[in-house]
Simulated assay, not measured.
Amino acid sequence: MSTHMADVTIHIDEDTDHAARERIQDTLRELPGVMAASSHDERPHLMVVEYDPARINSRRLLDTVTASGLHAELIGL
């Protein structure tokens, strides 16, 4: 198991409610290598995902979000 961790912020274009964001986060957490996924009601368009880059890449995270029918982009710092 890798000891490296990375995080990425995903911007979701659509307005989503709390329950929809929870479903997306649960789906992301089920992916191998994802340690956490979170969002806050104060900033509903942003979701932060912590993951092991040796096991999964940010593109797969984004593809998982967009597969739910949403439009989204990765935000880099």
Rank of each mutant, 00 (worst) to 15 (best):
residue 10 I to P: 01
residue 4 H to G: 06
residue 51 Y to H: 04
residue 23 R to N: 15
residue 57 N to F: 02
residue 6 A to T: 05
residue 69 G to M: 04
residue 3 T to K: 14
residue 60 R to C: 04
residue 64 T to S: 08
residue 29 R to K: 15
residue 58 S to T: 08
residue 77 L to I: 10
residue 43 R to I: 12
residue 74 L to E: 07
residue 37 A to H: 01
residue 7 D to T: 05
residue 5 M to G: 09
residue 9 T to Q: 10
residue 28 L to S: 01
residue 63 D to H: 07
residue 44 P to V: 02
residue 60 R to S: 11
residue 64 T to V: 06
residue 43 R to P: 02
residue 51 Y to F: 15
residue 17 D to Q: 07
residue 35 M to A: 13
residue 51 Y to R: 00
residue 16 T to W: 05
residue 71 H to C: 06
residue 63 D to W: 04
residue 12 I to D: 01
residue 68 S to I: 05
residue 14 E to C: 05
residue 13 D to N: 13
residue 39 S to R: 02
residue 41 D to V: 07
residue 31 L to K: 08
residue 76 G to D: 15
residue 46 L to Q: 04
residue 8 V to H: 02
residue 18 H to E: 11
residue 72 A to P: 00
residue 43 R to N: 08
residue 27 T to Q: 13
residue 41 D to G: 09
residue 12 I to L: 15
residue 1 M to A: 08
residue 34 V to G: 01
residue 42 E to M: 09
residue 73 E to A: 11
residue 9 T to G: 04
residue 51 Y to D: 02
residue 35 M to G: 06
residue 61 L to D: 00
residue 5 M to W: 07
residue 32 P to A: 10
residue 51 Y to P: 00
residue 53 P to I: 10
residue 32 P to Q: 06
residue 28 L to D: 01
residue 55 R to G: 02
residue 23 R to K: 12
residue 71 H to F: 09
residue 18 H to Y: 09
residue 52 D to N: 12
residue 13 D to Q: 12
residue 56 I to Q: 00
residue 6 A to L: 05
residue 2 S to L: 03
residue 18 H to G: 00
residue 33 G to E: 03
residue 40 H to R: 14
residue 33 G to V: 02
residue 2 S to Y: 04
residue 38 S to V: 06
residue 5 M to H: 11
residue 8 V to S: 02
residue 16 T to V: 08
residue 31 L to A: 04
residue 2 S to A: 10
residue 33 G to C: 02
residue 42 E to G: 08
residue 28 L to I: 10
residue 35 M to P: 00
residue 71 H to N: 14
residue 59 R to D: 10
residue 37 A to I: 02
residue 63 D to N: 10
residue 28 L to Y: 01
residue 4 H to W: 04
residue 18 H to P: 01
residue 52 D to F: 01
residue 21 R to Y: 06
residue 21 R to I: 03
residue 65 V to S: 01
residue 31 L to G: 04
residue 20 A to M: 06
residue 39 S to L: 00
residue 20 A to C: 05
residue 27 T to R: 09
residue 3 T to G: 12
residue 2 S to N: 11
residue 65 V to P: 01
residue 58 S to E: 11
residue 52 D to V: 03
residue 59 R to H: 09
residue 38 S to M: 07
residue 53 P to S: 11
residue 3 T to Q: 15
residue 39 S to G: 07
residue 33 G to H: 01
residue 57 N to K: 05
residue 24 I to W: 00
residue 63 D to K: 05
residue 58 S to K: 13
residue 44 P to Y: 00
residue 33 G to P: 00
residue 65 V to F: 01
residue 43 R to L: 12
residue 29 R to N: 09
residue 32 P to D: 12
residue 9 T to I: 12
residue 75 I to E: 06
residue 77 L to W: 09
residue 45 H to E: 13
residue 45 H to N: 12
residue 40 H to P: 03
residue 45 H to M: 11
residue 28 L to K: 02
residue 36 A to Y: 09
residue 46 L to E: 05
residue 21 R to D: 05
residue 45 H to K: 13
residue 44 P to E: 00
residue 30 E to D: 14
residue 70 L to C: 10
residue 2 S to C: 08
residue 36 A to G: 03
residue 42 E to Y: 10
residue 20 A to Q: 09
residue 1 M to E: 15
residue 2 S to Q: 09
